[in-house]
Structure formats: structure tokens, C-alpha cells
């Protein structure tokens, strides 16, 4: 009796292996792609922004491609672990990586020794252009200029929160350079930790995408001084850009999909056009607005490569800056 239970259990445990082995034998011709489920690696834990954007695409991709798209979370080394896994995967179009600008930043700070050039990027699924600078509403800063003038009077005193090597750190450095001021850049943890720190006035400013701070903006606890984008957002049009206030700092994060190097261009084109279709769907726009206050923004393969190369070049030019030298 007991033995048979263990045999059944062993068989159940072995079944995924058999299933995976069976799948290997089917051909990988680009014309018929996809003929089996596609695995998209998200290099962070489930529940974050990257995971959300990947899953939202996966939800709609299934109907367009006719095959399920599964999300696999491979966290570790600030996204480096998942990137390595896809870089080393077979370029058959069945594994891909969904990551953002941090992939490039990881190379700049030395977490990994490669960036997008080691893979075949397909397209940018969404641009998050909603980086804002907020202060506690009890503070006296009413505009970005108030903050900058105070920083000029008290150099090195204003606590600007970010993690070193993170994107918000880079935004802070750009603002320091543009306004010719000097902040005290402190580490206060991730997005939600920084919300708590700003609420308790342990830090003076907080830069993050709008969606991360939205609950506190809605409740009146935070005051937004500037949006780091070319133009105002349609979703929160009352917030002025830093550019209008005379400080030209632009921040953005692009979430892009890439395949292992050597993947058939036909597969890449097919995936890219499927994602483009989704990015134009109204239900997709509603999903991302509700969760992160972001508007759809898609870029095709060529544009994506241009964007990534340009971003990499600007990161590299500022390497010393980013490393805090």
C-alpha cells in the first residue's frame, strides 16, 4: 500500500521531465513558431513592476500567438541572475528576457559583464516616463526651484534618497549637475521604504515613478514638485515637468524583451508585432494605467536598439558619476 503511494509520487514528480523531454523533439522552424509554450524570464520576484508588465503582456500574447506564455521569476544580483540564464539559453525563440534599463546599469556598475549587446532585443514593451520628485507636504518647498535654492544655500544638507547604482541615483546626479547643487545622497531602501522615510520626514526628497507614490499623493501626504519627462502626463496633467521649471532632466525606464543571441529574426519580428498589437489595445492601456499610472508606449526592434545603445553610451559617459567617484 505505502510503496504504491511512493511509486505514484515518484511518477508524478518525474512527469515534468518526461513532458520537457517530449517537447525537445519538436522542430524549431521559425515559420511555424510558436509550437509550444514560450518562457519569459523576469529577473525579479513576482509582484514587482517588471513582473507586472511582463505578465500583462503574457496575458494577451497567449491569444495572439496561440501558445501559452509562462513567466518565470529568476531573482538575484539585481536582475543579473535572470539575464545570465537567458543569455545562456538555446536561441530557439522559446525563452526570452523581460528587463529594463537596469540591465545596462548592471554592466556599468560591474554586477554583470554584459548588457543588451549579448542578446537579441526584440522591442520595448512600455516606457515608464513618470519619474517624479516629491517632498513631504509639511515641507516648505512649493516648487523645484525652492528646493534648488535651498540646496544652494545649504550644500550637502538636503537628503536625496536613492540606492547607489540605481536609476534614481542617476536622476539625482543629473539634477545636481543641471542645477549645479550638491545633495546628501542617502540610501533609504527600495520604493516603498522610501515612501515611509519621506512620510516620517527622515529624507527630504523622493524620486520614483508616479505609481509607486500615488497612494501618498492622493492622501495629501506628499507634494509633487516635478515630473522628469519631455512633456506632462495625460494621466496627471497638473504636475509640471522639471524642464518647464528650467531644469532639463529627463528620466525614463524602458521595459524591453530580448531573446538569446542568434534567435531567428523572423521569430523576433513575429513577437515584436504581436506586442505592438497588444500595446494598442484599450484594455491593455487600462490595465497599466490602473496599476502603475503609465501610458502605453511601444518601440519596434530598430528603435529599441537605438534607444539601448544611446542609453548605454550616456551611462558609460557618466560611469564615474554613477559609481560615486
Amino acid at each position: 500500500m505505502k510503496k504504491s503511494i511512493w511509486i505514484v509520487m515518484a511518477l508524478v514528480l518525474m512527469s515534468p521531465i518526461l513532458w520537457a523531454a517530449g517537447q525537445q523533439e519538436i522542430g524549431n522552424e521559425a515559420d511555424t513558431w510558436p509550437t509550444k509554450p514560450i518562457e519569459i524570464v523576469v529577473p525579479f520576484n513576482a509582484g514587482g513592476d517588471t513582473d507586472f508588465h511582463a505578465r500583462t503582456y503574457a496575458k494577451y500574447l497567449k491569444d495572439i500567438l496561440g501558445q501559452p506564455v509562462t513567466i518565470i521569476n529568476v531573482a538575484g544580483a539585481n536582475g543579473g541572475a535572470g539575464s545570465i540564464r537567458v543569455k545562456n539559453a538555446k536561441p530557439d525563440g522559446y525563452s526570452a528576457l523581460f528587463f529594463h534599463d537596469s540591465m545596462l546599469m548592471n554592466k556599468v556598475v560591474g554586477v554583470t559583464d554584459f548588457a543588451h549587446e549579448a542578446l537579441d532585443p526584440a522591442c520595448i514593451g512600455v516606457h515608464d516616463d513618470t519619474y517624479i520628485l516629491a517632498v513631504n507636504s509639511k515641507s516648505t518647498y512649493m516648487s523645484l526651484d525652492d528646493l534648488i535654492q535651498d540646496a544652494k544655500k545649504h550644500p550637502g544638507d538636503i537628503k536625496y534618497a536613492s540606492s547607489i547604482g540605481g536609476y534614481t541615483y542617476y536622476v539625482g546626479c543629473m539634477l545636481e549637475r543641471e542645477a549645479n547643487v550638491h545633495f546628501n545622497i542617502v540610501d533609504a531602501g527600495g520604493g516603498s521604504d522610501r515612501n515611509a522615510a519621506l512620510l516620517a520626514q527622515k529624507i527630504d526628497t523622493n524620486v520614483n515613478p508616479y505609481g509607486v507614490m500615488k497612494p501618498f499623493i492622493d492622501s495629501g501626504d506628499f507634494r509633487v514638485l516635478a515630473l522628469f519627462s519631455e512633456k506632462r502626463s495625460n494621466l496627471f496633467p497638473t504636475i509640471p515637468t522639471a524642464k518647464e521649471q528650467g531644469y532639463e532632466v529627463i528620466g525614463s525606464r524602458a521595459y524591453f524583451l530580448s531573446f538569446p543571441k542568434g534567435t531567428d529574426p523572423k521569430i523576433i519580428a513575429k513577437m515584436s508585432s504581436a506586442m505592438e498589437t497588444i500595446s494598442k489595445m484599450p484594455e491593455y492601456a487600462k490595465d497599466i494605467e490602473l496599476a502603475y499610472c503609465v501610458e502605453p508606449g511601444f518601440s519596434g526592434t530598430e528603435e529599441t536598439l537605438k534607444y539601448l545603445d544611446k542609453t548605454m553610451a550616456s551611462f558609460m559617459a557618466d560611469q564615474d558619476f554613477i559609481l560615486g567617484k
Binding site: 509582484g47 516603498s192 501618498f216 492622501s219 490595465d287
Partner: peptide, 15 residues
């Protein structure tokens, strides 16, 4: 992950 489960449905915990 609980937070992710809420955010996904457009619910942002906060004040």
C-alpha cells in the same frame, strides 16, 4: 507578493 497581488488589480495600499 501580497502587495503584488493587490497592485495587479489596480489597488495600491496606502493611507
Amino acid at each position: 507578493m501580497l502587495l503584488g497581488g493587490l497592485t495587479l488589480h489596480g489597488i495600491s495600499p496606502g493611507p
